[in-house]
């Protein structure tokens, strides 16, 4: 079908790995920020770790190449909402430290 059967899926896999790595770093920073905020902070940190684990589980096939290559997958909205969720939890963690 194409002249480059290997490269396109490979590049996409690597892009997924970079993205999941970035999400992991952001999650670590969110947890670090949240843990200074008492009980509410601990709950926010727990939510961040749970969201990170769920995202990693559902996107693992894309990052390792075991998942099918096809359009219209749910992994795209899942990982985008994980990033937006990390932003929300981070903002809440910053705000809880002010009170």
């Amino acid at each position: 079908m194409t002249g480059d059967p290997g490269l396109q899926p490979e590049r996409t896999r690597l892009a997924w790995r970079r993205t999941l790595l970035a999400l992991t770093v952001v999650t670590a920073l969110t947890v670090r920020q949240a843990l200074g905020g008492g009980g509410v902070g601990a709950a926010l940190a727990g939510a961040a770790v749970a969201g990170w684990a769920a995202t990693l589980t559902s996107c693992w096939g894309r990052a390792t190449g075991s998942g099918p290559v096809r359009t219209g997958s749910r992994t795209m909205p899942v990982v985008a909402l994980a990033a937006a969720g990390a932003a929300t939890l981070g903002a809440l963690s910053v705000l809880t430290r002010l009170w």
Binding site: R18, T19, A22, L23, V25, V26, L29, T30, R32, Q33, V79, A80, A83, A84, A86, A87, G90, A91, V94
Partner: peptide
């Protein structure tokens, strides 16, 4: 998405 995550990481 990584651009967005970079902004989030920068904020944190």
């Amino acid at each position: 998405l990584r651009t967005g995550l970079a902004l989030v990481g920068g904020g944190l």
